[in-house]
């Protein structure tokens, strides 16, 4: 029980972090059809910017400035890069973002070196918020939850209550129709791409000191974010949210599961030893294959429901 409750909180924090990254990608992928592999690179840039800024102006200004910088970079990428490539097709756009991943990765190494950065949680948030069964819940985790909840609320308000939000919503599901109605779809694209990059940057700012800030952090986050977006379904922020939380929970709860398939077979009178490949697969415990679970879930859902969990159209 005690592990269950703490795992629930841990899963929530991780899930919200995933959502912060995935929400931007969902918008970009659903509207523009771009498999943006550089999204995680922007997340990394966010963390590095925040580290650099927090050395000069402190954490709180960095929390504002770094995401804005990332948003500006996103806008630049869209206007000067993707827009020109757009008419060459989706694979061209994908390769364009591939190229960006390499360049940003090396640029970060050139600018900040190869070692992890000493980017730390600000002193004002470095205390235990409360204690649960003797285990501290750091205030910074609460802060992360707060920021991501605020972000969720802001996006929701923007999409539901503003004119641009309505256009974006319409463009999510019927991009060609929106364009036919005379809206300036390219500039909507720019806004969405910049906004998505801003969110990725924000995720980088608040995750960089919670996790570590180093030049391989983009590679670590990249695939799982795609899983979340596709699992949740294109065109649906709600689906993305549910998928993020679900993946967060899956990751945390699989850790505490010690049983394996062989244990399930035992009551049936079948015993398995780890002498061959099949035996090995059956005897490995769930906690060891936890990170595989999201990919299995992804494959399974796409097999039976190609639009994802709550997708509004076929991918």
């Amino acid at each position: 029980m005690q592990i269950g409750l703490i795992s629930l909180l841990d899963g929530l924090v991780y899930g919200m972090l995933l959502f912060m990254l995935a929400s931007g990608l969902t918008l970009i992928l659903s509207m523009m059809g771009v498999l943006n592999f550089a999204h995680a690179s922007v997340y990394m840039l966010g963390a590095y910017f925040a580290y650099e800024l927090s050395r000069w102006v402190g954490f709180w200004p960095a929390l504002i400035i770094a995401p804005l910088l990332c948003g500006a970079i996103g806008a630049a990428i869209e206007v000067w890069g993707l827009r020109r490539v757009h008419h060459n097709g989706h694979i061209a756009e994908l390769l364009f973002t591939f190229g960006l991943v390499f360049i940003i990765g090396r640029a970060v190494q050139m600018a900040w070196g190869m070692l992890p950065m000493p980017y730390r949680v600000p002193a004002s948030l470095d205390f235990p918020l409360f204690s649960l069964y003797g285990e501290n819940f750091p205030a910074y985790r609460g802060f992360m939850l707060l920021i991501s909840a605020l972000m969720l609320l802001t996006i929701w308000l923007l999409l539901k209550k503003t004119r641009i939000g309505l256009i974006i919503q319409a463009a999510l599901t019927h991009p060609s129709m929106v364009s036919a109605l005379g809206h300036d779809v390219p500039s909507v694209f720019t806004i969405v791409f910049a906004g998505g990059s801003l969110l990725a940057g924000l995720a980088g700012v608040i995750a960089g000191n919670y996790l570590t800030t180093e030049s391989s952090m983009a590679d670590a986050m990249g695939p799982i974010v795609f899983v979340v977006v596709i699992f949740g379904g294109l065109g649906s922020l709600a689906g993305c949210f549910i998928a993020s939380i679900l993946m967060g929970m899956v990751q945390t709860f699989s850790v505490v599961m010690e049983w394996s398939f062989a244990d399930m077979l035992r009551p049936l009178g079948i015993s398995v030893s780890a002498d061959d490949l099949l035996g090995e697969i059956l005897t490995i415990s769930i906690s060891r294959i936890g990170p595989l679970v999201p990919y299995v879930l992804l494959i399974v859902i796409l097999l039976f429901r190609p639009r994802g969990l709550m997708g509004t159209r076929e991918t």
């Binding site: 596709i230 990919y295 299995v296 992804l298 494959i299 796409l302 097999l303 190609p306 639009r307 991918t315």
Partner: peptide, 17 residues
């Protein structure tokens, strides 16, 4: 079983797996 993006994403899952 799927085509287009869903196909690509299934294969992404398979390779990670």
């Amino acid at each position: 079983k799927q085509r287009s993006t869903a196909f690509a994403m299934i294969t992404l899952g398979i390779v990670q797996l």
